[in-house]
């Protein structure tokens, strides 16, 4: 079925009307979620992920505490309605466990865990909609939620998916494209340009890989600019809200 869809047409457009290097619409919502210390909802086109961060707080299980740094706990759950085919995945699913392990090991060297000995940081990832680029959305969402929670990070982690159709590299794949072309997920630290995560699961020639790998590294910087803008906007709103409350002016204060 998938082969009937034209991945890249002669005019250079993809199945959803994008150009080769065009990213999908990125929406970031950093508003408060219930009792979470930090939260973010990130939308890459039709992929939506909600991340809540709790902590640093005391670990529920005593055995999990580490005397010199914080322990990071990641749990991923995928909503049954997130895919076209309604399927309930239980938490013991290997794919989901792997996703959680990937997120955990990506953020372990980025979070300054040594500042919070004997504590725990919980990251809960809820996948709401899936349309390709799941890992990328999970990682980007987690970065934003951690930043929103005020947890010190050494850098942002910006993830992008790239793929190669015949010889044409493309960025930010949808589910249709992901099923059809070899794809690579790359997460970069934009300040140093270094790479923390690379995953690829399909057959691809070494030279093609190099091309898409470098391209995804550049795209990470674009995502980084979006992150910075979203976080700055959120902080401005918060600071504005702090100033807007009923305040006692200097003269009134003198009278009391």
């Amino acid at each position: 079925m998938a082969s009937r869809i034209e991945i890249l047409n002669d005019g250079g457009f993809r199945s959803d009307g994008r150009r080769q290097y065009e990213l999908r619409d990125l929406a970031i919502d950093l508003s408060q979620q219930a009792s979470a210390d930090g939260a973010a909802t990130i939308t890459h086109g039709l992929t939506q992920v909600m991340v809540s961060v709790f902590g640093p707080r005391e670990a529920k299980m005593r055995s999990q505490t580490m005397h010199d740094r914080a322990n990071i706990n990641v749990e991923v759950s995928v909503a049954a309605f997130s895919t076209g085919e309604r399927r309930k995945r239980n938490r013991g699913d290997k794919r989901i466990l792997e996703l959680a392990a990937t997120i955990k090991s990506t953020f372990e060297p980025v979070i300054q865990t040594s500042l919070y000995p004997r504590s725990q940081i919980d990251i809960f990832v809820q996948v709401l909609e899936q349309d390709g680029g799941l890992l990328q959305a999970c990682i980007n969402g987690t970065t934003l939620a951690l930043a929103n929670a005020g947890i010190p990070l050494i850098d942002f982690v910006c993830a992008v998916t790239g793929g190669v159709h015949l010889t044409a590299p493309m960025l930010d794949l949808t589910l249709i494209e992901e099923n059809d072309v070899p794809h690579v997920s790359v997460a970069v630290l934009p300040k140093t340009g270094k790479v923390t995560l690379v995953t690829m699961e399909t057959r691809l020639h070494v030279e093609r890989f190099e091309e898409i790998f470098r391209l995804a590294g550049q795209a990470g910087k674009v995502i980084h600019a979006e992150f910075k803008r979203a976080l700055r906007d959120r902080t401005t709103t918060l600071v504005g809200a702090m100033g807007a409350g009923p305040r006692i002016s200097a003269e009134e204060e003198m009278e009391y």
Binding site: P109, T196, L197, V198, L204, V206, E210
Partner: peptide, 29 residues
């Protein structure tokens, strides 16, 4: 994971020390 025909099948680096892109490509070679 790759075959003798220079086709990569799986590349997997989950977190850990961040590396420069050239370093990763060198190791793949």
């Amino acid at each position: 994971a790759l075959n003798a025909q220079k086709e990569l099948c799986v590349v997997q680096k989950f977190g850990g020390v961040p590396l420069a892109m050239d370093e990763i490509l060198r190791l793949i070679d």
